[in-house]
Design a protein around this nucleic acid. Sequence first.
DNA 1: CCCACCCTTCGGCCGCCGCCGAACTGTCCC
DNA 2: GGGACAGTTCGGCGGCGGCCGAAGGGTGGG
Lengths: 226, 226
Amino acid sequence: MSDITRMASVAALMGDPARANILTALMDGRALTAKELAFAGRVTPQTASGHLARLTDAGLLAAEKQGRHRYFRLASPLVGQMLESVMAVAGPEPRPPSTWRGGEALRTARTCYDHLAGRLGVALADSLTKAGHVALSADGGEVTERGHAFLSDFGAEPAAGKRVFCRPCLDWSERRPHIAGRLGAALAARCLELGWIARQRDSRAVTITPAGADGFAGTFGIRLEH
Amino acid sequence: MSDITRMASVAALMGDPARANILTALMDGRALTAKELAFAGRVTPQTASGHLARLTDAGLLAAEKQGRHRYFRLASPLVGQMLESVMAVAGPEPRPPSTWRGGEALRTARTCYDHLAGRLGVALADSLTKAGHVALSADGGEVTERGHAFLSDFGAEPAAGKRVFCRPCLDWSERRPHIAGRLGAALAARCLELGWIARQRDSRAVTITPAGADGFAGTFGIRLEH
DNA sequence: CCCACCCTTCGGCCGCCGCCGAACTGTCCC
DNA sequence: GGGACAGTTCGGCGGCGGCCGAAGGGTGGG
């Protein structure tokens, strides 16, 4: 099987609405049960089971058994990046008529795997770049000397590990990069710890708390209207 | 239509083998004709035409009409990035050590119908323009008095006929014009006659012979590191 | 042990879509 | 005008695959 054929298989897996919904439901890195994913995909459990088997076989999902549940999560961050890149091409929804709050909330701030995305994520990346704390290029990123001090002050201490430290990740709703990698994860974790943002149940959207509004404005000069 | 549904549509477009082959054939940024893409997709022209229409409608491809041909290219670099990210997930391919340099060869020098294109074709047009032998504008070209003498000396004698004598033709790999029309054909024919270039079987690529390297350098001041 | 529940497998239905042959349009060249 | 060729449209065929109902393990709790 040529690599193009394999690419087509992977793309075809993403190309079914039920599976696309399943995959995006897992984009924040959480693991969900088969039944939850059936709901996410708007299909019956039997149908979802088939989809999940195919996605797991193809290496897009990883499954873990726990009691009588089976938890599924994205097999690797690569899969999340792939989904984001497809969304970037598919483009943000043409705005005009609908004002679905959920979509709007997702565009304002959400988690992307384990880091921040949406307007907030992009604004953070912009702020850090403008202040000369990080430098993002097309396919890599670096933290400056001053940046290390600043981030340490802020309390964002990236975990040790082999994972890439800092990289740009194209934001599908904003079409501009936000910060991923260990640094991105540390930033998100620190914001959560400070109570600046709060995760929501059953959604990748995060809300900015009143304390967060002050904090983001004071520390990063970020003001998101509304 | 939701974001996810649109993502699924885009993914589904990538998910068909014929379309996947078509898209990857365009990944180097060149523009190809519908027929060439039909061959790339291993389908008949009718089938390819349908695929191309769908890909264009979805905004993955951009089409440009030129004479009786229609050239298709990726609509934006974002599309190429998406394809690469899917390939990255589809994954570590067991790649036998092949040295297929066809793509690179095509970019260096190739035929475009009956004239020269690629780096060589563009360099020729540049050289002739710079020396004041031809003048290319947006949609036409002329040969100067001195140019006629020069080309006659060189041995490029355009055939008689109704076909347009000299016109610029946008080079898809270089994105700058090369020379088409009867003059372009005559130049290519003369270079072939002199043994400066050699056509290859089953490919639009042409190779520059050692004699050609000397000739292009001496007569036109062209040196292509390759 | 029995039941409840999660998940999977099986079988059959149905619709979508990829494919091609044939025919038509438009362009180029002579 | 005539011939050749690029590209498209139309119509019909065939198969892949998504969907669900029903039934079959496997696990946990009473």
